[in-house]
Amino acid sequence: MAAGDGGHPSDETTVRGAGPRQTWAALPWLIRSAVVWSACLVVIAAGLYLLAQITLLVTPLAIAVAATLFLAALLDPVRLALRRLRLPGALAALLTVLLLLGILGGVGILVWSLTADQFSELGDELGQGLERTRDFVISTLPVTEEQLDGLLAQLRQTVSQQEVDPIASARTVIEVAGSALLALVLLFFLLKDGREMWHWTLRRAAGRNREIAAEAGRVGWRTLGSYSRGTMLIAAIDAIGIGLALVLLRVPLAFPLALITFIGGFVPIVGATVAGAVAVLVALAANGPTTALLTLAAVIAVQQMEGNLLEPLVMKRQVRLHPAVILIAVTAGTLVAGIAGAFVAVPITAVAWRVIDSVQRQRQAAAATGDSA
Rank of each mutant, 00 (worst) to 15 (best):
A2C: 11
A3P: 04
G6T: 06
P9T: 15
E12H: 14
T13R: 15
S33P: 01
V35F: 08
T59K: 14
A62K: 04
A73S: 02
L74W: 07
D76T: 10
A92H: 03
S113G: 04
S113L: 03
A116W: 02
G129P: 03
E131S: 12
E131G: 09
E131H: 12
V137P: 00
L148N: 03
D149R: 11
A153I: 01
A153F: 03
Q154W: 04
Q154C: 12
L155R: 13
D165Q: 15
I167H: 12
R171A: 10
R171W: 03
A183W: 01
L190E: 14
D193M: 01
G194H: 04
E196D: 12
A206F: 03
N209C: 07
R210E: 08
G220C: 07
W221M: 11
A239F: 00
R250H: 12
A254W: 04
A254P: 02
L259T: 03
I260L: 08
G264E: 00
P268R: 10
A272I: 01
A277G: 00
A277I: 05
A285E: 12
P289W: 12
L294Q: 08
K316A: 06
K316Q: 11
L321E: 07
I339N: 15
I348Q: 05
I356N: 09
D357S: 12
Q362W: 06
D371W: 13
S372A: 15
